[in-house]
Amino acid sequence: MEHTSTYLTPEIKLSCYEDKLFKTEVTFEHHMLIWFISGETKIVQAEASYLFKAGDIFLIPRNQLATIINYPKDGLPHKTVVMHLSAERLKEFYANLEGVHKASPTPKIHRFTHHPLLESCLASLIPYFEMKQPFPANIASLKITEAISILRAIDQEIDGVLANFEEPGKIDLVSFMEKNYMFNMPIEKFGYLTGRSLTTFKRDFKKAFHTTPQKWLTQKRLELAHYQFAEKKKNPVEVYFEVGFENLSHFSYAFKKQFGYPPTALLEQRTRR
Results as ranks from 00 to 15, higher is better:
Val100Met: 11
Cys16Pro: 01
Glu231Arg: 13
Met131Thr: 09
Thr67Asp: 12
Gly191Met: 07
Pro107Gln: 05
Phe36Cys: 08
Asn70Phe: 01
Ser197Ala: 06
Leu125Ile: 01
Ser120Phe: 07
Ile34Cys: 15
Glu157Trp: 02
Lys189Trp: 04
Phe241Cys: 07
Leu125His: 04
Ile148Cys: 11
Ile139Tyr: 09
Glu119Trp: 02
Val243Tyr: 11
Asp172Leu: 00
Ile109Asp: 08
Lys233Ile: 04
Leu193Lys: 05
Ile43Trp: 02
Gly244Ile: 01
Glu178Pro: 00
Glu166Trp: 03
Asn247Lys: 13
Leu198Gln: 09
Phe259Asp: 05
Lys189His: 07
Pro262Leu: 04
Phe209Asp: 12
Arg111Trp: 01
Glu92Gly: 01
Asn63Met: 09
His250Gln: 14
Ala103Ile: 01
Asn184Ile: 00
Pro116Glu: 13
Lys233Gly: 05
Arg272Pro: 01
Gln45Val: 03
Leu59Arg: 11
His30Phe: 08
Lys108Glu: 15
Leu118Asn: 10
Leu217His: 07
Thr264Ala: 11
Ile187Met: 12
Ile69Met: 12
Leu8Asn: 12
Pro61Cys: 09
Asp56Gly: 12
Ser15Cys: 02
Glu178Trp: 00
Leu90Trp: 08
Ala95Thr: 08
Asn70His: 13
Val239Tyr: 05
Pro72Phe: 03
Met1Ile: 04
Lys207Trp: 04
Thr80Ile: 13
Thr212Arg: 09
Lys143Glu: 14
Phe205Lys: 09
Gly55Arg: 05
Lys143Val: 01
Cys16Ala: 07
Ser249Ile: 07
Ser49Phe: 00
Tyr128Glu: 13
Glu157Tyr: 06
Phe58Asp: 05
Phe129Glu: 07
Ala265Asp: 10
Lys73Ala: 14
Phe245Asn: 13
Ser141Ala: 09
Tyr128Cys: 06
Lys233Glu: 09
Leu151Asp: 10
Ala48Ile: 02
Tyr192Gln: 13
Asp159Ile: 00
Glu92Cys: 09
Leu65Thr: 12
His30Ala: 13
Ile148Lys: 11
Ala163Arg: 08
Thr194Tyr: 02
Leu173Asn: 08
Ala95Arg: 10
Asn164Met: 00
Ala147Phe: 02
Gly244His: 06
Ala254Phe: 03
Lys256Met: 11
Ala254Lys: 11
Glu130Val: 01
Thr113His: 14
Ile60Pro: 01
Tyr128Val: 01
Cys16Phe: 02
Ser120Cys: 05
Ala153Pro: 00
Gln214Tyr: 03
Gln133Val: 05
Thr24Asp: 15
Phe201Pro: 02
Leu33Met: 11
Lys143Arg: 14
Tyr17Met: 07
Phe229Ser: 03
Ser49Thr: 12
